[in-house]
Simulated scan of single mutants.
Amino acid sequence: MTDMDGAQQGSRPLVVVTGGLGRVATVVLPWLRKQYRVRLVDRAVPHDGVDELVQADVGDPEAAHEVLSGAHALVHLAGNSSPWQSWDSVYAANVWPTQVVLEAAAAHAVPKIVLASSLHVSGEYNRPQYRPVDPRLDPRPCCPYGLGKVVLEALGRTHADRTGASVTCLRFGLTGWAPSERRYLAQWLSDDDAGRLMLAALQARERFGVHFGVSANTRNYWDITSGRHELGYHPEDDSEALADRAGPSSGPVCRLFDPQSSD
């Protein structure tokens, strides 16, 4: 890196990304680098790379406070995304770390926070009579994982009310994978659209908002109007281009894919 490159990096706002070596972080990182300095935080062993990488567990209050020093924004992606978890696991892996990292963000007066939520918050609405599902509907989670994300969103709203920070919750669909089964076509979020969505969320100044994170899919099950209008999210991809390669369902997951959903 040249001195000029270093100066340009230093002048950019710093975004801290928890779960920094995870699937979603890997997808959005090229987009973040366009506008931000990036500090990746993960429990995994650091590797060599162009970004600042800190090995830390954000469920540890001291560690969370340290990694958020100097941050202009927080993207909280850390957690366990398995729908088969027990509530105890969800609390330990998803709820508690969110509470801790938000308390650290409050201590540092971080003005912008993006929280990774999930379609599972609204999983019981994945039925023909509700489509496209409105993100303003009361949560109806389909599994303990979805319930944990309901709590995450509530923690985010409380944080926004208490601190005045701007908090955006993104209910991600299938991110970082091609839709190998037909039931995933409606909830697919392409890599490029994930980057567009993340940048839009970071630049939004809403006090608190919840938006679905899917592409401009022909199978319009999840309403992304709020993301378009309130965040300025402009998706360009459509899972229908991949439909010929999507096979039948491989087995039960949770009630997000209840037989009534007709996926």
Rank of each mutant, 00 (worst) to 15 (best):
L185I: 09
N217F: 06
K149A: 06
S190P: 06
A204L: 08
R228N: 09
P144Y: 06
L137Y: 10
Y221N: 03
I224F: 02
H211S: 10
D193I: 00
V151E: 15
P141I: 04
L152W: 03
H229D: 13
F172M: 14
L137R: 13
G148D: 10
G173H: 15
L199E: 00
C142V: 08
A154C: 08
R157C: 03
L202S: 05
L170H: 04
G195V: 00
G173L: 14
R140I: 11
L174F: 15
R136Y: 13
Q129P: 03
L152G: 11
S190F: 06
Y221A: 05
P111V: 01
L197E: 10
R131W: 06
G209L: 10
G195M: 03
V114A: 02
P111G: 01
A186W: 04
P132F: 03
C169Q: 12
L231N: 08
S190H: 10
Y145W: 00
Y130I: 04
T218M: 00
R182H: 06
T175Q: 12
S117N: 09
M198Y: 05
P135Q: 10
R140D: 10
S118Q: 03
N126S: 07
L231A: 14
G156S: 01
C169W: 05
A216F: 03
V121N: 03
G213N: 12
R205V: 08
G123F: 02
W177Y: 14
W222A: 00
W222C: 01
P135T: 14
F208R: 03
N126H: 13
Q187L: 15
V133H: 02
C142M: 08
R207V: 01
A186N: 05
Q203N: 15
S122V: 09
P139I: 10
A154Y: 09
W188M: 11
Y130P: 02
A186D: 13
A200D: 08
R205C: 08
G227N: 08
L202V: 10
L185S: 07
P139L: 14
A201L: 13
D161Q: 12
A165V: 01
A116V: 06
P132W: 06
T218L: 05
R219W: 08
T163R: 00
T168P: 02
N217L: 09
A186S: 14
A160P: 00
Q187R: 15
H159T: 13
F172P: 07
E181A: 11
R127H: 12
Y184D: 12
L202Y: 07
Y125A: 05
R131I: 00
Q129S: 13
R140M: 13
R162Q: 08
A165S: 07
L155H: 07
G146C: 07
L231M: 07
D192N: 00
N220F: 02
H159N: 13
A165K: 02
N217V: 09
H159G: 09
L189E: 10
T175C: 15
L231I: 12
R127G: 04
K112C: 02
A165F: 01
S118E: 04
Y184F: 15
S215C: 05
E124T: 06
T175W: 11
T175N: 14
A216N: 12
C169G: 09
W222P: 00
R182L: 13
P135G: 13
T158G: 06
W177E: 14
D193S: 07
A201V: 11
R196G: 02
R219A: 05
C169Y: 12
